[in-house]
């Protein structure tokens, strides 16, 4: 069975000097959560926007494969794309306030999505909106329908965004840092809601985050991005059990884990900052910050496989981590 969303060799650039995404391949299956993880500037959000056809003006997208439910997205016109967006492909963003129109009520914005894509009566659309608001854990949905976005707290607004994304029964939900602006308790509630909805509706979720904790708890598959490339891709269990790319390992060492890392102990850290990658860059983007880099890293990066479904882009052999420990 082919994946619901299949992306191969996705490249994005905004000007002649730098490339934001340099050949990203991701596949998201039905009912699966795929996490795209990386630090700011690694190209994870740009990749998602490129898939949705929402790149900022001047962004140039190329790809070897870009298909959604068997349909090639590369040749679609803007109006065909906008018919797909919000219908079978929905997206939620980090800051729900900016994605909701402050001048309209929650109800009319939610109904509008349904009416635009599916037609029907306004009454039916509002009923569906109320039902979905109830489903995402909002008490008194009837009352909320008549309210304006600024009358809701951040957590409620994000619930509204999720309900709005579900108005047309999407197959794929792209969530770009959906809980970064929220408090931790609300974050847990929202993520739990997404998991429940996935189990219930068979949603495929492409979740973009910088938080490895969220990745570990939510993901079926993980793609770690660095400097516009996927450097390691594996199932969540495999990735956390055996992180192989030096960047993935470095990132995991940076996170304090209560009960696992002694208090006050030195945390691992990666020296330097994310570089800007010029057009036509050769070799490994991580080599300047990597303790294991050698001359060969400046020319090319071999794609290796640790196990079936666990790929990484580094010259080091799969066993280097155990050798180092020994």
């Amino acid at each position: 069975m082919s994946a619901l969303l299949e992306v191969n060799g996705l490249r994005v650039r905004f000007n002649e000097k730098a490339e934001a995404v340099r050949g990203v391949s991701i596949a998201v299956n039905k009912g699966e959560t795929h996490c795209l993880v990386g630090e700011s500037g690694c190209g994870k959000s740009v990749s998602a926007l490129a898939v949705m056809g929402l790149l900022a003006k001047g962004g140039i997208r190329t790809a070897d494969t870009l298909s959604f439910a068997g349909q090639d997205l590369r040749g679609l016109t803007e109006s065909q794309m906008s018919r797909l967006r919000g219908d079978k492909m929905a997206m939620i963003f980090q800051e729900p306030m900016t994605s909701l129109n402050p001048a309209y009520t929650i109800g009319s914005q939610m109904a509008e999505v349904r009416l635009r894509h599916r037609g029907g009566s306004k009454r039916e659309a509002l009923d569906r909106a109320a039902a979905l608001l109830g489903r995402v854990g909002i008490t008194a949905p009837g009352l909320r329908l008549g309210q304006f976005p600024h009358q809701l707290s951040g957590g409620l607004r994000q619930r509204v965004m999720i309900a709005m994304a579900l108005m047309c029964d999407p197959d794929l939900l792209i969530a770009d840092e959906p809980t970064t602006a929220l408090d931790v308790t609300v974050q847990a509630q929202i993520l739990r809601l997404l998991m429940e909805l996935q189990a219930e509706l068979g949603l495929a979720i492409l979740l973009i985050t910088h938080d490895l904790g969220i990745v570990a708890r939510m993901a079926h598959r993980v793609s770690v991005m660095y400097a516009g490339k996927v450097v390691e891709s594996a199932s969540a269990e495999a990735l956390f059990a055996a992180p192989t790319h030096p960047y993935t390992r470095g990132l995991l060492d940076c996170v304090p884990i209560p009960g696992k890392i002694a208090r006050g102990a030195q945390l691992g850290s990666i020296p330097g900052t994310v570089p800007r990658i010029p057009l036509g860059f050769q070799g490994c983007g991580f080599r300047d910050r990597c303790a294991h880099a050698d001359a060969s890293c400046a020319t090319g990066v071999p794609a290796q496989s640790r196990a079936p479904g666990h790929d990484y882009a580094c010259r080091l052999p799969a066993g280097w981590t155990t050798e180092q420990a020994a």
Partner: peptide, 9 residues
């Protein structure tokens, strides 16, 4: 949420 897979939310 610690980076420990399998614990769920």
């Amino acid at each position: 949420l610690t980076p420990e897979p399998g614990l769920g939310i």
